[in-house]
Design a protein around this nucleic acid. Structure first.
Lengths: 347, 347
DNA sequence: TTGAAAGCGCTAACAC
DNA sequence: GTGTTAGCGCTTTCAA
């Protein structure tokens, strides 16, 4: 057992309160008293019991971050940014990995870590508006990724549809007319982000006066490299050979790229490939990967700030979440044309 | 404010203890009592205050995982495995990102999260034996990565020196005689893992009767793709053109690969490149990356198990850590020859 | 099988 | 400036 405030107080010959004052850096402690206490603190190697402090203060200084998988680079990079942003504001981050499984996401929403975290940042995959509405946990919540429609909750995301439109327009501008998309999720109604990206693709084609060929819209089970590789194999075996492929994320694109190169195709000369997310891999692949860069640092910062406001806020965390003032923040993104579509290499 | 046990007890017309019994799933509660309590629990949407529970139990069910950076794929994949292994044993993981900074690693060691985590898994970069010996925090600790020499602490790592030797021998077996290494850290005495990998490289050359050419030993600032790219540029601009390059991790290798391809070299025909870590990127790069696969799942599992034993153990966490029974677990690894050295492509 | 009461270690009123 | 004390919500002897 470590030393408690009482032990320190006894050794220093002062009251518990005084020790507490010193520990918490309060002013108005007589220099000599302070010194005496500090000596006792050091001698006993005192460490505050954070559980006790948390219970008393009603705060833990910890926020939860729930995301599908830490080993997908986009989420790893995002987690990094969230942890950094949180640390700058004095918070530590507890991570829940959901693997995109409905029951785990459900648990997260219902507050498995009640009173262990002051707030929660959540990047859901399967959660729909009903589930969000049915939430009774009062822990402040900020959602990442696409808005769960009609959700009464803060959320932060880029404009996925616009970004996908821009990317597709980029492919059109290079002269391509048969443009495929990899990563459709029509079988998964809750996959909002995917739907928006595919919608943006369709919009851009329509705007360019191109017909959409449903055979060029390739669904995938998930969003990993293997899915992209497999989807590209199907595409290459199919009846229509696309000139360009828009992949709904960079992992899909890197998988597709691998398949294309293995098949002896030149990228982008024979087939152009674009991704989404700007994970670091795509900056070092050969060819480098054209992509959309969401401002992850901004997303993380805003999410933490919204959460902080909610935690400190006057509003006693209305039942069901932040209903009245729910904010919908649209984060920035850029289009980054690179070798996999333009063929241009750096000097 | 949420409902407390007392509130539930009042509503159900029973004592606090009874409610606690029901909440904790104790047997020996009369069925009707249980039902009454459960109704009250549901009606008030009761959620246990984990801070209070932790204070009372002296346990939190949370372990800390301190690592340099979550956005380096090796650590992301490792974190994933640790979180999984911890979850299987009922633990949640709090993550501390040290960025490999000495002061942050120092804080981690001195227990910033005292009594907030039951134990700590730590992958240090700069920590040496003195600092470890000077540790006074009693939180059970398991180190990942190479043993801090003479450390009185459990640690889990692969045999880095042997793995590096095997990899270098693989390059020798392909007929290469001028073999470079990227990632030397002689300027950083605490970088144990790096030293072991370079030592393994030297050993393998010696065993093959090859001279080591110090001009082929390239230091790097850190272990990211950019460092590898830069190191390869220096190597290609240097007086001796290597036939093969052993990179101390996969990120360095992917950076080096990019530089080589940009310079118009064929890999492996003109220059072979090998990495270390088996991050997923290397399975989809073109060419795919020859590497060493540490068994990350095993490392994570063993680390969590050692920690669990320590936390539950009879030993009251001896001052300074687990001195008496400190275990040194050597995890498995494999050599994975792939295209970047063999040139062989899958059918 | 259930209840009463003590106390985990800390902070925050409130007194002095 | 410093001390006293109550109590955060829970678990846990100990009795009944």
């Amino acid at each position: 057992m470590g030393a408690s405030l009482k032990d320190v107080a006894a050794l220093a010959g002062v009251s518990v309160k005084t020790v507490s004052n010193v520990v918490n850096g309060y002013t108005y402690v007589a220099p000599q008293t302070r010194e005496k206490v500090e000596r006792a603190l050091a001698e006993l190697d005192y460490r505050p019991n954070l559980s006790a402090r948390n219970l008393r203060r009603g705060r833990t200084g910890v926020i939860g971050l729930a995301l599908p998988e830490l080993d997908a680079p986009y989420f790893a990079e995002l987690a990094r940014s969230v942890i950094d942003a949180a640390a700058r504001r004095g918070w530590t981050v507890l991570i829940d990995q959901t693997d995109g499984l409905p029951e785990r996401e459900h648990q997260v929403l219902q507050g498995i870590r009640d009173h262990l975290v002051d707030g929660l940042i959540f990047s859901p995959i399967t959660i729909g508006p009903e589930e969000l509405g049915a939430r009774t946990d009062r822990t402040p919540l900020v959602l990442l990724g696409e808005r769960v429609l009609a959700g009464p909750t803060h959320h932060v995301a880029i404009d996925n549809q616009r970004a996908a439109r821009e990317m597709t327009a980029h492919l059109v501008s290079l002269g391509h007319t048969r443009i495929a998309v990899i990563g459709d999720q029509r079988h998964n109604p809750a996959a909002n982000t995917a739907h928006l990206r595919v919608a943006g693709y369709r919009e851009a084609l329509a705007a360019a006066g191109l017909e959409t060929d449903e055979r060029l819209i390739v669904p995938t089970g998930s969003y990993h490299r293997a899915d992209g590789a497999e989807a590209m194999r199907r595409l290459l075996a199919g009846p229509v050979r696309p000139q360009a492929v828009f992949c709904c994320n960079d992992l899909l694109a890197l998988g597709a790229l691998r398949t294309a190169l293995l098949a002896g195709l030149r990228v982008p000369e024979d087939i152009a490939i674009a991704g989404f997310d700007d994970i670091e891999d795509g900056r070092y692949s050969t060819p480098t990967l054209t992509t959309v860069r969401p401002d992850k640092a901004q997303i993380a910062r805003v999410a933490v700030e919204l959460l902080e406001a909610e935690v400190n806020g006057p509003r006693p965390a209305a039942r069901g979440g932040a209903a009245p003032g729910a904010q919908e923040v649209v984060a920035d993104h850029d289009l980054l044309p690179r070798e996999s579509t333009t063929g241009r290499r750096p000097a």
